[in-house]
Design a protein around this nucleic acid. Structure first.
Length: 436
RNA sequence: GGAGGGAUGGCUGAGCGGUUGAAAGCGCUGGUUUCGAAAACCAGUUGAGGAGAAAUCUUCACGCGAGUUCGAAUCUCGCUCCCUCCGCCA
């Protein structure tokens, strides 16, 4: 949510931002409602003041056992007036808030202006393209052959767009998120969390998924709860309606959760394999920081996410998103895309965003600064990283001509020493037991 | 799911429907004192709006939302959350 004062004082800037983000907002009527509301508020305040003053007078008269009936008569009228005004003000306030909740965040000044992803700017690339002496296969073929991914049966039990990991595939998934969580919590100093997967409407509104994206969310209508589309939602909202002390900042959190997305707007896109699924695991990093540090924090957030891919030996590129590709709540965002040899393209595995105070204002997350003033924190988050596409890249980039898949070295300790996923053998890939 | 109890400022905790935005204590901040510190004493210490150049004035908020009343932290109703007991259960 924007500070309404920015809209009042610099509406052109807001209009430009809305336009650049390919969004729509009812800005002119916002100002109109705002001034109408303010006028009523002043009128109402005057009447309330009158009521307060007279009530005290009535109290005094009564305590002296004097007659106050004329004052009481007068106040009856005043109270009725106030009530009517309050009803009108409430209606305007609701309208104002609903418009305000639908205005997107303003892009940072160094974000390139552009309509669509073609205007995104390449910031860096890392790693060398894997070369193959054969034509690399896509992960759904490798996965089927090795019996580690089963899309048909996933569709049978749930529907299209779900994944069933089996044997070494399931183990690889577990190895991946354990590796990522250990890296972030032990090497990068993030506090590991395990939050609820169901959150209420207010949390979803706080981080900006609602009201705009309700149709993309899975919802439990009986309880008005939502399945989280990302750990960003529960984790950012941990501190909603709190005033943090300056010395607890910055807060750095890491959480691995399942993420649930209806993908309502993307039917028929990336339907093969697990390029785009309704449920997937993701390690998410969330930061609550002092405003003046948030852009430095964004850079370090990006670098710890990159670290994951570097250690896995996966080629990637980093893009700075243009205004038109920026999400509703973000002020600035980097996407990390990992190269995958089978599908032969770059896959987005992370978005690292600074929301400035946009989410903090919606969720009411504040801190007391050293000067004693209470201010909104800045919030950031980034994937560190999303699992399925990382899994795709590993399977496809580490495939070998004989159909086996090599395990990246950093994952081997998490795979109980397994170096290669072979076909045929029982999916448990029996290795030395550490239970004996 | 059933039966009770509760929700007040950073914390503990008072609060007959009428100078209670809120006692008291703790904590915190500043000052006096001290070589310094502690103690003691004095003072300050909620947030969000509005008007104003400013001093300042003013409104709202005692879990949330309605209601009764000239007037609600205080009375009524609904909701949420917490605690205790019973039942059920991973």
């Amino acid at each position: 949510m924007l500070d309404i004062n920015i809209v009042r004082n610099d509406i052109e800037k807001v209009k430009q931002a809305v336009f650049n983000k390919n969004e729509k907002a009812n800005l002119d009527s916002l100002l109109e409602i705002d001034s109408k509301r303010k006028a009523l508020l002043i009128e109402c305040d005057d009447l309330r003041n009158k009521r307060n003053v007279t009530s005290k007078k009535i109290s005094k008269l009564k305590s002296k056992k004097q007659d106050a009936s004329s004052e009481i008569q007068e106040m009856k009228g005043v109270s009725d007036n106030i009530k009517q005004l309050e009803v009108n003000i409430k209606a305007l306030t609701d309208e104002l808030e609903s418009i305000l909740l639908n205005i997107p965040n303003i892009p940072a000044s160094d974000v390139p202006v552009g309509k669509d992803p073609t205007s995104n700017v390449m910031v860096k690339t890392w790693g060398k393209r894997k070369e193959f002496s054969f034509t690399p296969l896509p992960h759904w073929e490798i996965g089927k052959e090795l019996d580690i991914l089963d899309f048909e049966r996933a569709a049978k039990i749930s529907g299209a767009g779900f994944t069933l990991y089996k044997g070494a595939g399931a183990r690889l998934e577990r190895a991946l998120y354990n590796f990522m969580l250990d890296l972030h919590s032990q090497e990068h100093g993030y506090t590991e969390l395990f939050p609820p997967y169901l959150v209420n409407r207010s949390s979803m509104t706080g981080t900006g998924q609602l009201p705009k994206l309700e149709e993309d969310m899975y919802r439990i209508p009986e309880d008005d709860l939502f399945l989280i589309p990302t750990a960003e939602v529960p984790v950012t909202n941990i501190h909603s309606n709190e005033v943090l002390s300056a010395k607890e900042l910055p807060l750095h959190y890491a959480a691995c959760t399942a993420c649930f997305r209806r993908e309502a707007g993307s039917h028929g896109k990336d339907t093969r394999g697990m390029l785009r699924v309704h449920q997937f695991n993701k390690v998410e990093l969330v930061k609550l920081v002092r405003p003046e540090t948030s852009y430095d924090e964004l850079e370090s957030l990006l670098s710890v996410s990159e670290k994951v891919l570097q250690l896995l030996g996966l080629e990637y590129q980093v893009l700075k998103l243009c205004t038109g590709d920026l999400s509703f709540a973000a002020a600035k965002c980097y996407d990390i895309e990992v190269w995958s040899s089978g599908v032969n393209k770059f896959l987005e595995v992370s978005s690292c965003s600074n929301f400035e105070d946009f989410q903090a204002r919606r969720s009411n997350i504040r801190f007391r600064d050293d000067d004693g003033k209470i201010k909104h924190v800045h919030t950031l988050n980034g994937s560190g990283v999303a699992l399925p596409r990382t899994m795709i890249a590993i399977i496809e980039n580490y495939q070998r001509e004989d159909g086996t898949v090599e395990i990246p070295e950093v994952l081997r300790p998490y795979m109980n020493g397994l170096e290669v996923i072979n076909k045929r053998k029982k999916s448990s890939q029996r290795i030395i037991s550490f239970f004996s």
